[in-house]
Design a protein around this nucleic acid. Sequence first.
RNA 1: GGGCGUUUAGCUCAGCUGGGAGAGCGCUACCCUUACAAGGUAGAUGUCGGCGGUUCGAUCCCGUCAACGCCCACCA
Length: 888
Amino acid sequence: MNETNELPKTYDPSGIEDKWYKTWEESKSFKPVANKDKGTYTILMPPPNVTGRLHMGHALDHTVQDVIIRFKRMQGFETLWVPGQDHAGIATQAKVEEKIFKEEGKTKHDLGREEFLKRVWDWKEEYGGHILEQFKKLGNSCDWDYFTFTMDEGPSKAVKKFFVDMYNEGLIYQDNYIINWDPKLQSAISDAEVDHKEVAGKFYHIHYKVKDSNAVLEVATTRPETLFGDTAVAVNPNDDRFEHLIGKKAIIPICNREVTIVADEHVDMEKGTGCLKVTPGHDFNDYEIGKRHKLEIINLINSDGTYNDNAKPVEGLNSKAARKKTVELLEEAGQLVKVEDHTQQVGHSQRSGEIVEPMVSKQWFLNTQKMAEISVKEVENEKMSFFPKGWENTYYSYQKNPRPWCISRQLWWGHQIPVYECSSCSHQWASEQDADSCPKCESKEVKQDQDVLDTWFSSGLFPLSTLGWPDEQAMQEKGFDKFYPTDTLVTAFDIIFFWVARMMMMSNKVTNKSPFEHVYIHAIVRDKDGVKMSKSLGNVIDPLDIIQQYGCDALRFTLAVSSGYNRNINLDTEKIEGYRNFINKIWNAFRFISPNLENANDKGFEIADLHHHEKWILSELNDVTKKVTHSLEEYRFDDACNQIYAFVYDKFCSWFIELSKGILSSENENLKTQRANVFKYCFKHIMKLIHPITPFISEEIWTYLKTEDESLLISQEYPMYKEEFCFNDDVYNMEKFIEIITSVRNLRNSVNVKPKEEIDIRLFTDDEVLARYLFKSRGYLKELANVKAGKIKDKSVERPEKSIMRATAHTEIFVPLEGIIDIENYVQKLGNDLKKAEKEFEKVEKKLKNPKFIENAPDNVIAEVKEKASGFEEQVKSIQNSLTMFES
RNA sequence: GGGCGUUUAGCUCAGCUGGGAGAGCGCUACCCUUACAAGGUAGAUGUCGGCGGUUCGAUCCCGUCAACGCCCACCA
């Protein structure tokens, strides 16, 4: 053959992908182009941790964002996709600590704060960039010039500014309060960082003696070791059993301390023994009870989780050992009544996995009461919306009952709290600038608070800080006013509280505007059996492996086609392979039209000259364009992909290309040119439609299609629906034509006539318009079904004998057959057809005979049903006639 | 304890405001037909979780039961 051979038979993405990414970057295609008439469109990328590695979750998250941003860019928006990275306080510090200890046997304390931080920065410089390079393999069209690290100067300024403002407003304050303490990290963590896991534990029933009384209180607890910190015993005020004891003293076993018996509504009479030991220092509820009754707080636990000398008998032991020891002591004292099995919910640190110790400690808090109210209202008033909408419940549940957010962490890696204290006069103040003297007494003895801020404090400000806030000049340079608020945030449900809510609260506080209009919550990627991917299970699918094996476009298409409003994606490599095949199909469709492109001229085509097949495919293309655009705007990537897939595969390849082979191999230069023009037009259009999803192959093919004036596909205009390309009659006729061809093929198949064998057919229809159309199309019938030109007659004419037939609602197709055919098989098949048609007919008949249906149903529905009924009736009659011929 | 979600073809899932059950993969038969065997043609498969209700009509709305999954909640 000829030119086709220049293009490889299968599409090979390797090489092509890197080439195009580089080209896009060099041509600055990812940068916003000013003065677009549609305005701006901004997406903020959820910043990955510096310690992160690319996984399928990123691949999905970024595919979705890149699809949106490429789509909007082509639609004519001034688009900006802002990439960033998070310093991830705890995770990073832990990683570097471990590395240093492994390699040098040193702890961070051995190095000192300054040296240790230097090491973390070194580590960040060396490894932090890895994941960003991996992102590029996904085709992300983000503007790397906007790249922001949460510890950069900009975000640091933002953090300080926000902190100082909140401090001065009194919303940030320092308090002794019960917090979650992670004894492994030796830091406070926020409520959100605690996971409650079910643990098989024990219920210990302990006797507390009552002073000056013979009464004994039976107290039930899961944590007997905390009895050293008890400062009360509580009962319900309405509980008759204990009423007479309220106000008396109970004696704590082992340490024999006296505490008051108090009445508190919190105590559940049904639960346990109805009698509660109160340890305000180490239990959230007890802390509240303690506050109500002004109880003393006794701290029992050191920062490493061991017990201190307030619990002398168990001093130096950790919780587990202390519990064992305490139980032994209770037994010895004869005050342990019984031990029951009990399943309980125990808080574990999300980061370290360690059991969290509730502990009273001096920490910094942000009062989020008012901010949470506003961010709830913003969603209620649809200033910000979730897609799918259901996720707003999750968002509300987090925000409607906000507790003060503990923002201080006893770590080194992070934003150090910008609060200073004077050792001379004890004055405390917050400052955006480093302070070296006290503003009150001018003493030089000032010290900055040693703690750092929760990582989410800086990422919560990311929509602002990535665009330059609070630095006026930076804001101008980065176009804060243009790009803020951003448009859509794309993320997974698990950080709705951590991140989405915090951004909402903080950004609204600063700007009185929500930081984004839409939040699209995508699914979680699991393995093919629906199990979460994890290293230990060995079921991880690495995006980079997939890209290497199947190409990035195949991966992107698979992820996009799996993304709608669903919660899970069960990723199967077979599925990716399937869509890889689709990518290859596109490649081959292009290979087919490629040699004909020379015939295309630059003038294109006139609508008046179009062949009915051309009108049909243009009309279908027009239709799919409308649907795809709509689906993308609704974040229905699944629908958008399926629309494109069905059009390319079932309409364009299976029919339009097949129907065009005759013309393209003919000598008719006019027709050939015309068809080549239409092919070129369609293919360019398809490449534009699919580009946001599969950017690489589309950009590659585009180079063969574009005119000299046209630039890269990435910056072309997205196709739009055009009224003048809507040809309903041609679509209608084509549908019938396809039905007839399919029926003929079905008939051949039913009697095992080989594809190569030419057969004769007769068509009978009473639809005159269709008859004319079929006559016009007889050549195509011949080509596509390998039939001799058949005759088209109306149904009054005698049917041929010795024929097999198939009936549609509008046309009977007869194939006269000489010789031996598989009659039995055929008759059975015909019988099945009859049964089906009869069943359908009965169904609609029944409806039409129901007077209530006629009375109540809308006219258009009745008309539809009537039309169907007559169609099925025709079909039934035709098949019955034919069957009687065979039976006789 | 509270809340949310899921249940549709062998598998994974789509079905918008109620009006003849869909896709991909897999499966079966035939075919190396001049873009593609990573292909072509044709085909089979569903009490739409159970029960009850509303309606002329329910996969869709209401009630109820069941199974599975997830999230939140202070470790009596």
